[in-house]
């Protein structure tokens, strides 16, 4: 049968920063072709196709709780593969090679991690699962 793609609504303007991305305008509708765990989704909007940040989209048919995993408060050990400096209040700054606990794998690619008593969002593409036990 035909492939039915999920439709999402754009919630904020997005300006592309590389050639495989597309611009988004608030209120546009896009169809999602692929959802990458790192938070970049491949979508089509009219005749354009390209990657866009998932956090700029909301599902057309109600909340997407079903596809978003529940938080895991015990945490899953990961190691940072790249440093990142927080740019927004709810983010966490970490150096490369630090061990953290991932407590919520959000679909937008900004996972909630815990490091000691600090908690904040961190780019999932800078995290690698670790074999170390808690």
């Amino acid at each position: 049968g035909p492939i039915i793609l999920d439709t999402y609504r754009v919630i904020a303007d997005f300006e592309k920063t590389s050639k495989h991305e597309i611009n988004l305008h608030t209120g546009d509708f896009v169809e999602i072709v692929e959802k990458n765990e790192n938070g970049w989704w491949f979508c089509q909007c009219e005749s354009k196709r390209g990657w866009v940040p998932a956090s700029y989209l909301e599902p057309l048919d109600g909340p997407e709780e079903a596809e978003e995993p529940e938080p895991d408060y015990e945490g899953e050990m990961h190691v940072t593969t790249q440093a990142y400096e927080a740019e927004q209040e709810d983010e966490i700054s970490l150096e490369v090679g630090q061990t953290v606990e991932v407590i919520h794998k959000l679909l937008d690619g900004w996972w909630v991690v815990r490091k000691g008593e600090q908690t904040g969002h961190y780019p999932s593409m800078f995290l690698q699962k670790s074999d170390k036990k808690n």
Binding site: I11, A12, F14, T17, S18, H20, E21, V33, E34, N36, N38, G39, W40, F42, W51, P53, A54, S55, Y56, E58, P63, E64, E65, Y84, Q88, E89, D90, D108, G109, W110, H121, P123, M125, F126
Partner: peptide, 22 residues
């Protein structure tokens, strides 16, 4: 065809523009 996704973290909208938690 689908190219590889960008290698930089996806940007986030400013807090006031974000989706409300479900």
């Amino acid at each position: 065809s689908i190219k590889n996704p960008p290698q930089n973290p996806p940007p986030r909208p400013p807090p006031e523009m974000r989706r409300k938690p479900a």
